[in-house]
Design a binder for these strands. Sequence first.
DNA 1: TGCCTGATTGCCT
DNA 2: GGCAATCAGGCAA
Length: 199
Amino acid sequence: MILSTSFFQQPTRILAQSLLGTYLVHETKEGKTIGKIVETEAYLGSSDPASHTYRGETIRNRAMFGEPGHAYIYFTYGMYYCFNITSAPKGIGEGILIRALEPIEGIEIMEQRRSARSKTKLSPKTLANGPAKLVIAMGITKALYGHKLTEKPLYLLSSDHFSVINEPEIITTTRIGISVAEEMPLRFYIKGNPFVSNM
DNA sequence: TGCCTGATTGCCT
DNA sequence: GGCAATCAGGCAA
Protein backbone atom coordinates (compact mmCIF):
# COMPACT_ATOMS: atom_id res chain seq x y z
CA MET A 1 0.00 0.00 0.00
CA ILE A 2 1.15 3.52 -0.74
CA LEU A 3 1.69 5.37 2.50
CA SER A 4 -0.79 8.20 2.81
CA THR A 5 -0.64 11.68 4.26
CA SER A 6 -1.71 10.60 7.73
CA PHE A 7 1.32 8.34 8.07
CA PHE A 8 3.59 11.35 7.90
CA GLN A 9 1.66 13.24 10.58
CA GLN A 10 3.49 11.53 13.42
CA PRO A 11 5.98 13.29 15.68
CA THR A 12 9.35 13.43 13.92
CA ARG A 13 11.17 11.04 16.25
CA ILE A 14 8.38 8.47 15.96
CA LEU A 15 8.11 8.87 12.23
CA ALA A 16 11.86 8.32 11.84
CA GLN A 17 11.39 4.91 13.43
CA SER A 18 8.13 4.14 11.65
CA LEU A 19 9.89 4.64 8.33
CA LEU A 20 12.27 1.75 9.04
CA GLY A 21 11.13 -1.25 7.04
CA THR A 22 9.04 0.75 4.57
CA TYR A 23 9.90 0.87 0.88
CA LEU A 24 11.01 3.85 -1.15
CA VAL A 25 9.93 3.59 -4.79
CA HIS A 26 11.03 5.70 -7.74
CA GLU A 27 9.56 5.21 -11.20
CA THR A 28 11.64 6.64 -14.03
CA LYS A 29 11.96 5.98 -17.73
CA GLU A 30 14.94 3.76 -16.90
CA GLY A 31 12.61 1.59 -14.85
CA LYS A 32 11.42 1.17 -11.31
CA THR A 33 13.78 1.02 -8.36
CA ILE A 34 12.76 0.03 -4.85
CA GLY A 35 14.77 0.19 -1.64
CA LYS A 36 13.84 -0.79 1.89
CA ILE A 37 14.61 1.95 4.40
CA VAL A 38 16.98 0.54 7.01
CA GLU A 39 18.53 3.67 8.54
CA THR A 40 17.19 7.16 9.32
CA GLU A 41 18.12 10.28 11.25
CA ALA A 42 15.71 12.83 12.71
CA TYR A 43 16.44 16.53 12.41
CA LEU A 44 14.34 18.74 14.62
CA GLY A 45 13.64 22.46 14.45
CA SER A 46 14.64 25.34 16.69
CA SER A 47 15.76 22.90 19.42
CA ASP A 48 18.32 21.14 17.23
CA PRO A 49 21.54 23.01 16.36
CA ALA A 50 22.49 20.34 13.81
CA SER A 51 19.36 20.93 11.76
CA HIS A 52 19.41 23.09 8.64
CA THR A 53 16.30 24.77 10.03
CA TYR A 54 17.84 25.74 13.37
CA ARG A 55 18.22 29.40 12.37
CA GLY A 56 14.89 29.72 10.62
CA GLU A 57 13.51 29.48 7.13
CA THR A 58 15.60 30.16 4.03
CA ILE A 59 15.17 29.46 0.32
CA ARG A 60 17.24 26.32 0.68
CA ASN A 61 15.33 24.74 3.57
CA ARG A 62 11.82 25.99 2.81
CA ALA A 63 10.49 22.50 2.08
CA MET A 64 11.13 21.46 5.68
CA PHE A 65 8.79 24.20 6.86
CA GLY A 66 6.03 22.98 4.57
CA GLU A 67 3.58 20.11 4.95
CA PRO A 68 4.93 16.77 6.19
CA GLY A 69 5.53 13.94 3.74
CA HIS A 70 7.35 15.93 1.09
CA ALA A 71 10.90 15.65 -0.27
CA TYR A 72 13.63 17.90 1.10
CA ILE A 73 16.73 17.45 -1.05
CA TYR A 74 19.90 19.41 -0.39
CA PHE A 75 23.27 19.79 -2.06
CA THR A 76 26.40 19.35 0.04
CA TYR A 77 30.20 19.03 -0.14
CA GLY A 78 30.12 20.53 -3.60
CA MET A 79 28.99 17.30 -5.24
CA TYR A 80 26.41 15.28 -3.36
CA TYR A 81 22.71 15.38 -2.71
CA CYS A 82 20.88 13.95 0.30
CA PHE A 83 17.22 13.04 0.57
CA ASN A 84 14.93 13.84 3.49
CA ILE A 85 11.25 13.37 4.23
CA THR A 86 9.67 16.46 5.76
CA SER A 87 7.94 16.09 9.09
CA ALA A 88 5.99 18.14 11.63
CA PRO A 89 3.11 20.48 10.77
CA LYS A 90 3.46 23.36 8.32
CA GLY A 91 5.53 26.12 9.86
CA ILE A 92 7.78 23.80 11.86
CA GLY A 93 11.03 22.88 10.16
CA GLU A 94 11.67 19.22 10.83
CA GLY A 95 12.61 16.27 8.67
CA ILE A 96 14.11 12.82 8.45
CA LEU A 97 17.30 12.05 6.56
CA ILE A 98 17.21 8.68 4.82
CA ARG A 99 20.69 7.27 5.38
CA ALA A 100 20.58 3.76 3.89
CA LEU A 101 18.47 1.45 1.76
CA GLU A 102 18.44 -2.28 1.17
CA PRO A 103 18.11 -2.68 -2.62
CA ILE A 104 14.94 -4.66 -3.43
CA GLU A 105 14.05 -4.10 -7.07
CA GLY A 106 15.83 -2.59 -10.06
CA ILE A 107 19.22 -3.52 -8.71
CA GLU A 108 20.81 -3.48 -12.17
CA ILE A 109 19.59 0.06 -12.70
CA MET A 110 21.07 1.06 -9.38
CA GLU A 111 24.39 -0.52 -10.33
CA GLN A 112 24.47 1.38 -13.61
CA ARG A 113 23.77 4.69 -11.93
CA ARG A 114 26.35 4.14 -9.21
CA SER A 115 29.08 2.69 -11.38
CA ALA A 116 28.84 5.70 -13.66
CA ARG A 117 30.27 7.76 -10.80
CA SER A 118 32.52 5.34 -8.93
CA LYS A 119 35.26 2.93 -9.88
CA THR A 120 34.94 0.95 -6.66
CA LYS A 121 33.55 -2.52 -7.00
CA LEU A 122 29.91 -2.37 -6.07
CA SER A 123 27.94 -5.01 -4.25
CA PRO A 124 24.30 -4.95 -3.18
CA LYS A 125 25.62 -3.91 0.22
CA THR A 126 27.45 -0.82 -0.99
CA LEU A 127 24.89 0.30 -3.54
CA ALA A 128 22.83 2.47 -1.19
CA ASN A 129 24.45 2.31 2.26
CA GLY A 130 24.87 6.07 2.63
CA PRO A 131 22.68 9.15 2.15
CA ALA A 132 24.39 10.39 -1.02
CA LYS A 133 24.79 6.89 -2.43
CA LEU A 134 21.11 6.08 -2.20
CA VAL A 135 20.20 9.32 -3.96
CA ILE A 136 22.37 8.26 -6.90
CA ALA A 137 21.16 4.65 -6.85
CA MET A 138 17.51 5.70 -6.80
CA GLY A 139 17.97 8.36 -9.48
CA ILE A 140 16.69 11.12 -7.21
CA THR A 141 17.40 14.63 -8.49
CA LYS A 142 16.89 18.20 -7.32
CA ALA A 143 13.87 18.33 -9.63
CA LEU A 144 12.02 16.36 -6.96
CA TYR A 145 12.58 19.06 -4.35
CA GLY A 146 9.27 19.55 -2.55
CA HIS A 147 7.64 16.57 -4.26
CA LYS A 148 4.66 15.12 -2.38
CA LEU A 149 5.67 11.59 -1.41
CA THR A 150 2.19 10.11 -1.56
CA GLU A 151 2.27 10.43 -5.35
CA LYS A 152 4.22 9.05 -8.29
CA PRO A 153 6.94 8.98 -9.40
CA LEU A 154 8.50 8.97 -5.92
CA TYR A 155 6.53 7.43 -3.06
CA LEU A 156 6.59 4.99 -0.16
CA LEU A 157 5.03 1.58 0.35
CA SER A 158 4.08 0.20 3.75
CA SER A 159 6.33 -2.45 5.18
CA ASP A 160 3.93 -5.36 4.68
CA HIS A 161 3.94 -4.98 0.92
CA PHE A 162 6.80 -7.42 0.52
CA SER A 163 6.94 -9.15 3.85
CA VAL A 164 4.36 -10.14 6.41
CA ILE A 165 7.00 -10.69 9.03
CA ASN A 166 8.13 -7.28 10.07
CA GLU A 167 9.19 -6.67 13.61
CA PRO A 168 12.49 -4.91 13.22
CA GLU A 169 14.43 -4.33 16.38
CA ILE A 170 15.39 -0.71 16.30
CA ILE A 171 18.75 0.53 17.53
CA THR A 172 19.06 4.17 18.57
CA THR A 173 22.41 6.00 18.38
CA THR A 174 23.82 9.46 17.85
CA ARG A 175 23.88 10.96 14.38
CA ILE A 176 26.73 10.73 11.90
CA GLY A 177 28.78 13.48 10.29
CA ILE A 178 27.68 16.44 12.38
CA SER A 179 29.82 18.73 14.53
CA VAL A 180 27.16 20.15 16.85
CA ALA A 181 24.51 18.46 19.02
CA GLU A 182 26.50 15.26 18.59
CA GLU A 183 25.03 13.78 21.76
CA MET A 184 21.40 13.77 20.63
CA PRO A 185 20.15 10.18 20.10
CA LEU A 186 18.32 10.69 16.82
CA ARG A 187 19.76 8.03 14.51
CA PHE A 188 17.77 4.84 14.07
CA TYR A 189 18.50 1.64 12.21
CA ILE A 190 17.29 -1.93 11.93
CA LYS A 191 19.37 -4.15 14.20
CA GLY A 192 21.75 -6.45 12.37
CA ASN A 193 20.77 -5.27 8.92
CA PRO A 194 23.87 -5.47 6.69
CA PHE A 195 22.77 -2.60 4.48
CA VAL A 196 23.14 0.04 7.20
CA SER A 197 25.96 2.57 6.66
CA ASN A 198 29.15 2.43 8.73
CA MET A 199 29.00 -1.35 9.07
C1' DT B 1 40.80 -2.93 8.22
C1' DG B 2 41.12 1.66 9.26
C1' DC B 3 42.62 6.43 9.08
C1' DC B 4 43.37 10.52 6.24
C1' DT B 5 42.63 13.58 2.53
C1' DG B 6 41.04 15.74 -1.83
C1' DA B 7 37.12 16.85 -4.56
C1' DT B 8 34.03 20.92 -5.55
C1' DT B 9 30.07 24.33 -5.07
C1' DG B 10 26.67 26.94 -2.80
C1' DC B 11 25.04 28.83 1.41
C1' DC B 12 25.46 31.38 5.60
C1' DT B 13 28.20 34.36 8.82
C1' DG C 1 35.74 33.38 3.71
C1' DG C 2 34.70 29.18 5.98
C1' DC C 3 32.64 25.11 5.95
C1' DA C 4 29.22 21.42 4.96
C1' DA C 5 23.60 15.82 7.52
C1' DT C 6 29.74 12.69 2.06
C1' DC C 7 32.40 9.51 -0.54
C1' DA C 8 36.24 7.17 -2.80
C1' DG C 9 40.90 6.20 -3.14
C1' DG C 10 45.47 5.88 -1.20
C1' DC C 11 48.56 4.42 2.10
C1' DA C 12 50.10 2.33 6.53
C1' DA C 13 49.96 -1.57 9.62
